[in-house]
Design a protein around this nucleic acid. Structure first.
Lengths: 247, 247
DNA sequence: GAAACTATTTGACCGTTGGTCAAAATAAAG
DNA sequence: CTTTATTTTGACCAACGGTCAAATAGTTTC
């Protein structure tokens, strides 16, 4: 919750603009080549500054990549919050979050590539504390949105509250979402599972978990196709691009 | 399905023994330090050979790590096949697989660390083709065991077969399992979700998905605590170590 | 048992890359 | 214009993955 910012000087604004330039190019390189297949020299060339200047913004290559990840994560949190404004049943609102996940995966395809590295302890050691906290903050925003919906679902009696806590339910949905995204990128599994549209698989698995949680109305008790049409129309008009597997 | 092997000479046996020695130490280093924080020189020192000798076994550091991962994956496939021999309802047998997952996570804790890297394209490029195929083979073994149980469940009418294919159901279970393992290692999420025992969370989420798939008998329709006791007794006597969160 | 030959092991060496810092360039102040 | 403060630069360093000619160990021949 940022208060009144001290007026940024021209220098500060230039610094900020350059940081975003760096992040943009780093993001592109991450997407095109992954983490290893480019170096700081190449990035410096791309942004038309020298290597030393890069290190005025970031303490290490890992710190830089974490900043890219956090910028993406902020977009996800923004999408989540936008999604949560949808008017409807709690399970319908959860469904909008599912759409947000897919929109995010399409908008920030480099994120899942980076997310892998975020699990490695050595990665975090090399990142600065400020960036670590920024990442945690955006992560918490995403968690909070989904958790709120589930708390509300329980309060309204749309989800049973006797078998598990709201946090357990949130965790289940987060897990299945991340796992589905990861697995649907695995070429071998895609063939074995006969996956044609990764996004469809992710949302299918989310539905399974929601049903498993007893989140009313269950999949076959409601016309979710109608809900989906409303979601596309009201919240994610661009979703048609990824909603149906390209023919 | 290995046929009659040509008799290995003494040299071949020594070569094999050394390879296992290398893998053992590499596995330990991976667990203790991750991927980055050790180098081939250190590994060479640990196994008391020189760096050049390591490169007679593996084409690159990545190739070596992939070999470690595949060795672990073989253990998982072994556990899965052992688990699938359990006599009982299909959902009970799926539950044994869930135990196998946890047993594996405890036995091969370095695997999830490595699995992250396996998603990176640049990683696979540096590994040899033979190791790639070996890894795919062990992965397919794991998939097949679970898939067979689900096919059988549908054939017996213990799982509905109208809403999805056996492969979709298998994919959902695989996704939630991997996702849960990953997420339950995230320190921030552990706090937010209030996770005390990662293994318990994984199995809980698997239960949710099984229920969501309509896999009879559902969680509340059957005394799965009794099943669990049988599983521990008959298949995983060591499971008590991780089954309950340590006090 | 020595010599000749083969197979294996070794570690000095190379190229690349993340990261540093003194010097150069630029901007600001006097 | 001169001096001072700030920013940018790229040569440089150390670390690491990977290579290969030389050394060592092992085997065969006479």
């Amino acid at each position: 919750m940022p208060g009144i910012q001290p007026t940024p000087t021209r220098k500060e604004r230039e610094f900020q603009a350059r940081e975003e330039l760096i992040l943009t190019h780093a993001r592109r390189l991450l997407l095109e080549k992954g983490f290893q297949a480019w170096n700081m020299e190449q990035l410096a060339e791309a942004v038309e500054y020298s290597k030393g200047t890069l290190y005025q913004h970031f303490t290490s290559k890992e710190d830089l990549v974490l900043a890219v990840a956090t910028a993406s994560l902020r977009q996800r949190a923004d999408l989540f919050e936008k999604a949560s404004n949808f008017k409807g049943l709690t399970r319908e609102r959860c469904r909008v979050i599912g759409f947000a996940c897919c929109e995010f995966a399409v908008t920030c395809p480099e994120y899942f590539h980076v997310e892998m590295m975020l699990k490695s302890a050595s990665f975090w050691e090399k990142a600065s504390d400020a960036r670590r906290q920024a990442h945690a903050f955006q992560g918490a925003r995403c968690w909070r949105v989904l958790n709120h919906i589930i708390v509300e679902a329980m309060a309204l009696g749309e989800m049973p509250r006797t078998h598990f806590t709201p946090e357990q339910a949130t965790f289940a949905l987060v897990s299945v979402t991340v796992g589905s995204h990861l697995m649907s990128q695995e070429p071998q599994l895609k063939v074995q599972a006969g996956i044609t549209s990764p996004m469809l698989s992710v949302r299918f698995n989310q539905d399974i978990v929601c049903d498993g949680l007893g989140w009313k109305p269950l999949l076959h008790e409601h016309d979710y196709a109608a809900t989906d049409r409303r979601i596309v129309k009201e919240v994610f008009p661009n979703a048609t691009a990824w909603l149906y597997p390209d023919t």
